[in-house]
Design a protein around this nucleic acid. Sequence first.
DNA 1: GTCACCTCGCA
RNA 2: GGAUGCGAGGUGAC
Length: 430
Amino acid sequence: MMLLSMAYQLTLHENLIEKLLSPANLDNAWKRVKANKGSAGIDGMTIDDFPTFANANWEHIKTQIAQGTYRPSPVLRVNIPKPDGGTRKLGIPTVLDRFIQQAIHQVLNPLFDPHFSPYSYGFRPNCNAAQAVTHLQTGIKSGRKIAIDIDLSKFFDRVNHDLLMHKLGLKIKDKVLMKLIGRYLRARIVEHGKRVKPTQGVPQGGPLSPLLSNIMLDELDKTLEKRGHHFARYADDFTILVKTKRAGERVLTSISLFIKQILKLVVNEKKSRVGAVKETRFLGFGFKYGRIKIHDNSLQRFKYRVRELTNRNWGIAMSKQIASLNRYLRGWGNYFLIANDYQLCVDLDQWIRRRIRMCFWRQWRKPRSKVKNLLKRGVPLALAISCGATRKGVWRSAKTKGINQALSNEYLANAGLVSLRDIWIKIHHG
DNA sequence: GTCACCTCGCA
RNA sequence: GGAUGCGAGGUGAC
Ligand SMILES: Nc1ncnc2c1ncn2[C@H]1C[C@H](O)[C@@H](COP(=O)(O)OP(=O)(O)OP(=O)(O)O)O1
Ligand SMILES: [Mg+2]
């Protein structure tokens, strides 16, 4: 019995490096790194350079990995703006290290993922944001009216190395692999040519980092489950549902304490709150009367983007413009239209069509819009004539009428403009 | 059903 | 400008 379990452990956990270095695993890892088409790390080596480099050096690197002597290169620090105005510190490993981390990810994920909480939805195979949101919805429908939103401050940047290594050590018995991961955590960061030693955090940009972050918060999930809370977590974004405000306040303080003391992470006090579910924002959604709504901020961003896509550039072929508008609408709709609000779709469709007509109206006012140019761009004849007529002194109303006629909803539908209404129907009765 | 490329959304 | 996972649409090859 003991022998059996030891043999089991040996094959499953102690020989992970071999699995890691197996040709099939490496092949998949490289495919993925290549498909992401990322840029070079600190060594300047691009995706295209890598195959020739690997042909010459991989055997050597492979031996180093197997023997536990491989040392990762430092990561390149790049600051990019966040939507909220702050900056996000990316840590970009070299292509070689992304390849190796990806290979590690593929070995570790099947080991850890099956044991994660079913209410953790971020960075996991077969899990998506819609599932997380609908899970919250069922909790709301069953009478929970109070939501606790907790946000972690600079989540990836503050992961505690010792604690993470401890959690990894509980499952990974392969000392060589543990050492390699430890070296990845301690890989130097290069910013403005200076090397700094990280004391905490996983790089935002490392293929392994998302999995490590889930391993880090797994204990939180399990604790919430054990306490019988209805919750959903997506990366560091999570919402817990309770019945009363009093219970909410109590849970917020106790969970905050857990996060600070046990997980050694920092709760973003400003973004954390407890209140009615109708005030909650989770993954771009909100809730109202037990229904999923698109949050105002998400709608605002949508309208801004549609304005951007319609405002200028109508000087070029209209079919091109409709195509780019279409792919945006499809992508956006397929994510957000799980919100069960049919009327909103109809309204948005109408809003989009009005915008398109309005942009034409503005543009054809300009003298350079000659009728035959309009025709060349694929503008319907009736519209072109009406614009020509306007410049000859016919009333504006004639132009408006011409545009409305020429760019009718029917015409735009024929031109292939997708409607959110159709996407909604496909999602809700498909 | 698999894979490749392009696009959109969320953390 | 880095990454993961998932979902969606399109083009293409088996
Ligand atoms: N574009 C991205 N690239 C890499 N990792 C990301 C990206 N967006 C989000 N993440 C990961 C790392 C973040 O720590 C984690 C949570 O994201 P987010 O809450 O937006 O920022 P944050 O937790 O780092 O800062 P903040 O203090 O503003 O909450 O998800
Ligand atoms: Mg955060």
